Simulated assay, not measured.
Amino acid sequence: MTTSAEESSVDLIGAILIEMFEFPAEEVQGGVLMRDLVTDSLMVVELAIALHERLGIKVDEEELRALTLDEFAAVLDARRTAR
């Protein structure tokens, strides 16, 4: 399953976090470190799988822990554009 080209990566990641992990929408902000959102290894794996299923893009654990939501979304945007 893929998303439309118009859906931003920030919106997609936010929707996944809210849907899968039941985060309150107000906690899913661009400047928040991903490691503060996906706090354990299972969450990292589940998010990586969801992104791969929806975008066809692979991400690794380091990316999911080291970057802010905005930075991580920019990485995904670049990969989406490169395809």
Rank of each mutant, 00 (worst) to 15 (best):
T2A: 03
T3F: 14
G31E: 13
E62I: 12
A66H: 07
T3W: 06
A48Y: 10
R83K: 11
L17V: 09
V75F: 01
L51H: 00
L17S: 11
L69F: 00
M1A: 10
L47M: 07
L55H: 02
L69Y: 00
R79C: 00
T39M: 12
D70R: 03
D11F: 08
M34C: 09
E27V: 04
R83E: 09
Q29M: 12
R35A: 09
G31H: 10
L67C: 03
D36A: 12
D40P: 10
L51Y: 01
Q29T: 15
F21D: 12
V75H: 02
L12C: 07
D77F: 01
D77L: 02
E6L: 04
D40Q: 06
V44M: 14
I18K: 04
G31I: 05
S4E: 15
M34D: 02
A74R: 10
I49V: 14
F23S: 05
E7G: 07
I49Y: 10
L12S: 02
F72S: 11
D40M: 09
M1Q: 08
A5D: 15
D77H: 02
A48I: 12
R65S: 08
T3S: 13
G30Y: 05
L33C: 00
T81I: 01
E71W: 03
E63Y: 01
R54C: 07
R65L: 04
D36C: 04
G56S: 11
A5S: 08
A66C: 13
K58Q: 12
T81C: 03
I16E: 04
G30F: 01
M34V: 02
T68A: 03
M34T: 00
V38Q: 03
I57A: 05
E6Q: 11
E7Y: 10
E19V: 10
G31A: 15
V10M: 08
T68F: 04
R79A: 03
T68Y: 02
E27L: 07
T2N: 07
L67V: 06
S8W: 09
T81Y: 04
D70W: 05
S9A: 15
R54I: 13
G14A: 13
T39S: 15
D60E: 12
R80V: 01
M34S: 02
I16T: 09
E7K: 14
A73R: 03
D40V: 07
I57T: 07
S8D: 13
H52P: 00
